[in-house]
Every structure is written in structure tokens, then in C-alpha cells.
Design a protein around this nucleic acid. Sequence first.
DNA 1: CGGAAAAATGCAAACGTTTACATCATCCCG
DNA 2: CGGGATGATGTAAACGTTTGCATTTTTCCG
Lengths: 359, 359
Amino acid sequence: MVGAPDAVRFPGPGSVYLAVTIKDVARDAGVSIATASRALNRTDLVAAETRRQVREAAVRLHYTPHGGARSLITNRTNTIGVLLPDLYGEFFSEVMRGIDQTAQREGYQCIVSSARHSGPTLEAALRAMRGRVDGLVLMSPEFTGELSKRTLPGGFPVVLLNCPPSETPHDSLNVENYEGAYTMVQHFISLGHQRIAILNGAQGNFDAAERLRGYRAALGDAGIPSSPELIVPGDFSEAAGEAGALQLLQLEERPTAIFAANDGMAIGALSALRDAGVRVPEDIAIGGFDDIPMARYIGPALTSVHVDISALGERATAALLSVLRHPGRREFTRETAATTLVVRRSCGARSPQGGPAAR
Amino acid sequence: MVGAPDAVRFPGPGSVYLAVTIKDVARDAGVSIATASRALNRTDLVAAETRRQVREAAVRLHYTPHGGARSLITNRTNTIGVLLPDLYGEFFSEVMRGIDQTAQREGYQCIVSSARHSGPTLEAALRAMRGRVDGLVLMSPEFTGELSKRTLPGGFPVVLLNCPPSETPHDSLNVENYEGAYTMVQHFISLGHQRIAILNGAQGNFDAAERLRGYRAALGDAGIPSSPELIVPGDFSEAAGEAGALQLLQLEERPTAIFAANDGMAIGALSALRDAGVRVPEDIAIGGFDDIPMARYIGPALTSVHVDISALGERATAALLSVLRHPGRREFTRETAATTLVVRRSCGARSPQGGPAAR
DNA sequence: CGGAAAAATGCAAACGTTTACATCATCCCG
DNA sequence: CGGGATGATGTAAACGTTTGCATTTTTCCG
């Protein structure tokens, strides 16, 4: 151990601790900066003994490469940005799990930011990330092609997750919302239900719109007229589910089944019905969407449209990493994630199977 | 609009899109780099007209400052690192929400990483973040002072969230696990319960250990002998709660109350009891810990030890930012987050109040 | 032992910023 | 009209890396 690092980085409002640079390591190991760099990275270009010394010095001095400086020269940050609409509930925690897992496995970090839905904030978040990330996983049901033009440098690698389809040059991955909702409602119909309500998702939300479309189509195809009072607005929150269910209970002619556009609202609705003394599924059947891990544990166990949520994150990230690795390619993929109906007690089907095993 | 950017950054395995630098902006606006930089940052040093031109050029060219280059010279990244033990469930999503919200409000980004619990991976994650962040929020029930020594440069700003207490020079914030558990069990006792079981958290987890300690103390102080078969191991998952409850049902003398060390396990236990035809709270009372947002919506509504989860993230982040802003200071704070018992139906108390209003 | 090839290492440029300092233009006041 | 103060802008150094190229050292073979 030769000398102390030569520079004590001072209270620039960021940090106080003494910054040890590769220069310090080099000096300590008695080699040049270049050799130190090589010894720490592609180990084949340097003599074994030298490498050992450099490594030891690095450990001893607690050397940390300065990510910024490195990315400056290599033109890559090894970081992906993740932009989520908001960080509520189990759904997003699952998506993040998939993203982070995949990114980490491939040696990437994640910068995550959740945008309150307004356009300007989304834009601000996007701006703040540019220059710090190699690519973006963007999950925003309000994302438009126009916004893309305005905020993303042309050709910047982006994967759109659950965004409205647009003609923008990006890869995309979408849940089969329409199909899932259709199947769920069809299932209700096959059980004999005719009066089926929907707790709708947030206004202007693409997923919500698609699920509503599936609901309508299933009714239409079965020749069941849809009645407006059975379509109640919501926002994906438990509270909205509760409120929506109460509203439906007020109707002269109550629905016999309720399709909630996500599990959170289904759970809220279940709670409201329980409080009101309405039996599920005997009096009213309930179905949700997403099949969050908890769905199987609540009472009664929730019938839901299963989405492999963490796989969503994994696939989006994998797609992004693939773009990062093969930058020449200019084909834009449009993937979809299939859904499966998981029948449990809440819908009143006679012999509920378990559905996909829980994680 | 004068010219195209002079450099097309090429497929360094990171990115393809053409990188526009401040140099391009300067040329386009007909000024020097320095003036461009000033116009984009501290606006007072430059003539109004010049500023306008530079700004326009920046917008027109989709200029993005290179975060790395900037941090190189300013010695701050405006980014904080967040290290979470794992990304399961609503708890972490809530914590993240608090962290991200606070960070964003103060102009900081978050790099988040979840570490599988083994020591080496935690260390790797820590290493990967160094040099990219100004400070760290570290949530790891396995974090030890020894590990700190080995991985963190001396004086690096870190806030420990729910970590085992240690003598390391860092700020820390801990939930009052002991007190919360004590209160919960005491509540059971006040309701007349004598045979109270606990579904314990993960082995080696500090929070879990503290909650168990509170459980034991409450029993001891009430003169109730604790019996080993009422202490069942778990890991904070719903599945573990289910399994644990089943195990308790096998006992010759069943418990009359179950304290689950977190809400996830409580929900798993509820599910098991429901399937077994055991009524809650009449036959067995149940209490949880954390009071995740969903706790009030499940059936029966879950009595739980309320923790303001997102506030946990907020406070930790605020503490970190405060350190970043006042680097001279060498006092290390040890904050605790109080808990409150929220009585709902699952514990069988006669007149459950609502507890803190749900968000 | 000589010399060429191979291996190891060093030198220096470059990455995109910010900023201290120097320079230049402008203004104001005597 | 002169000159100092002020304001606007430019020049260049520095931040910590990586890497092409030059240089030195080692190895190997005849």
C-alpha cells in the first residue's frame, strides 16, 4: 500500500467521501493508468502478476469506476430506464420484478420513475432520463405517437409496454385485453348470466378501453343487449371497485355478475358486497382481470383473467436488450401476451379448477 | 436551422441514434460551447436574445445533456440508489412509491435494484451502483456492519431502512416492530385469548426477529407461558401463511388467535382457515402486520399493525437528501417509525373502529 | 547469441460537460 | 471624448475513463 488517494473530493453539494480514481489504483499498483484499466476490464491483455497487483490495489482502496466517465467514452450506460404510470399495487411490483430480474441478469441497471399521468410530467420524466440510459421500457396507457415525436430522439431504443398502438417506430408488447375480457364475459354467459355489469378502468386508459370493448363484443355476440347503467366508471383502485359495486346494488334490477376490469376493483367490489350482505357467487358472481398473486387467497377465491405479470416485464426487457445488442436491425416487433381464464369460486362455476399454479 | 449534428454515434453496442451534443447546439445557435452551456443552465449570465436562440436550437435538435459528462465535472449524479431485498408484494411497491415520489420532487432519479438475499449478490449490487449514485437507500434485513466496511467507501451517504442496528456510520430508520407486535398480542390477550400463535417471518430477518420478541414479551408480561408449538416458521409469503395455519390446525389444542408477522401471511392463513371451515374471528382470531392498503378490503377485514409504508420510503429518502445537501454534518440519526393498531373484524373485537382512513 | 515475433505496458487523445479566466463590446459618467 | 465599470462571450482546462498506437520487454527459434 503506497499512498493515500491524491484528491479529496470536496462538498460539491453531492458527496464528501474521498473519491478514489483509477489513477490512485494505478499509482498504488505501480503501473500506468492504461494498464490499470486493462487489468480491471478485459483481463487477457495484461500479465497475470500485474493483474493481481492492480486488483488488489483496487480492492484495498475501495476503487469504484466512475460510471459517468466510462459511459462518456464507451457510449453506453448499461442502464435502462423504466417509466411506469404509477406505482400502486401488486401489479406494478410484479412487472418491476420481471424487469429488474432480466436486466440484472444481463448486467444492466434500472432507473425507474413513475409519472403522474399528465402529459408534461411524463415528458419531464422522459427528458430527465435521456442521456443516462441506453434504452427505455415505457409503460404508459396515455402514450401517444405525437408525444413520442416531441420527446424521444429519433431511433432511441424504446419498448412500449401496454401502450396504445401507434405508428411510432418502437417495439411493443401488449396484453390481450380484448380477448381476455371477451373470454371472461363469455364464461359468465355460459353460466347463464344475462345481466352482466362491468367495473370499467380509468378514463382514457387504453387497457381499460380494450377490456370494455371485449365486454361489449362478448355481449353482442351472444345477442345480449348492453345496458348503459351496467357500465360503471372506475380507476383500477379498490376504492373505485367498492363504490362501483355499491352503485350497482342501487339499481332496480341488479346485475347477476360483475366483471371488474382489474383485480383491485374486484377486491373492492367483493368487500362492498360482503358488507351489504350479498353472497358471492350465489347472489352475484364476480370476475377480475390480471390474476395478481393474491387473487387466489382472498375469499371467495377470485376468478380472473390470468396475465403472467412478471413475464410481461421480462419480455419487454428482453426485447429492449435485444435491440441494444443488435442496433442495425430496423424491424419493429409487435408482441402480445396471451391471457388465460382462471376459474375459482367467485364466479360460481361448478367445478373450479385451480388454474395455473401460483408462483 | 443550420446543420445536422456532426457526429453519428455508431453502434457501440449501446445505441445507434445520432447523438446531438451541446456542440451541435452551439453551432446551430452560432455561439460558443460555453455560452450554450450557460444559456441552458444558469440563465442570468447570458443575453436574453442569445439565450432564446440557444434554447430554440436545443429544442429543435432534441438536445439531451449527457448525464455522465455532466456528473464527471460537477461530481454529482442527481441519482440515488435504492437497494431492496426483493420486490414482492404490495409492501415494496408502497415503499418505492414513497421513495420515488420524494426523490422526484427534489429532482433526483432512482436506480433501483433488488438483491436476492445472499451476501455476494448484495455486494455485487452495491458495487454496480457505486459511481452512479450520490447516495443509497438500503433496505436489507441482512445487512451487517462487516458488509458495510467491505463494500461502501468510507463516508458514502447511506440511509439504512429496516436494517439490523449496527455501529456503522449511517443514518437509519426502523419500524417499531417490537412495540407493534407487543401491542397486537396484548390486544389479543385483552380480548381473552390465552392460546396465541405466531406465524413467524423469515429466518434471519431482523424485522421478523423483533416481532417475535414483541410477541414473547407480551405473553410473558401477561404471565402466559409460551409454548413452542405455537411458534411456526414462515417467510412472509401468502403460501407460508397458508401452510402455517394448516399446521396449527393439526394441533391437539388449537390456538384461539393467530398473529401473522405480516399481512401476506395473514391473508394466506385466512385462506387456509376458510377452506378448512374454520370461522374467523369466531373460532380463531387473526391479526397481521404492515396494514397494506388491501388489508381493509379482504374478508374479514384484517386487523393489523399499521405502518405508514410509503412514509417509510419518504422519510428515508428525505434523510438521505438531507445528508447530500449538508455533507459536513457528521451526526448520524436513528429514526423509528411508530405503528398503530388498526382493529377490524378479523380479531373479533366488539366494535372495530376503522383505523386510519385508507388512502 | 541474434533477431523477429509476441506479449506487456505506456502515452495521449477523445468522450461531453462545466467553469475560471481572459477578452471584447458596451455603457455611463465626468 | 476618455476611461473605468459592467456585461456578454470565448478559450481552454479539467473531470475519470477507454483505447489506438507506439514503445518496451519478453519469448522463442534458428
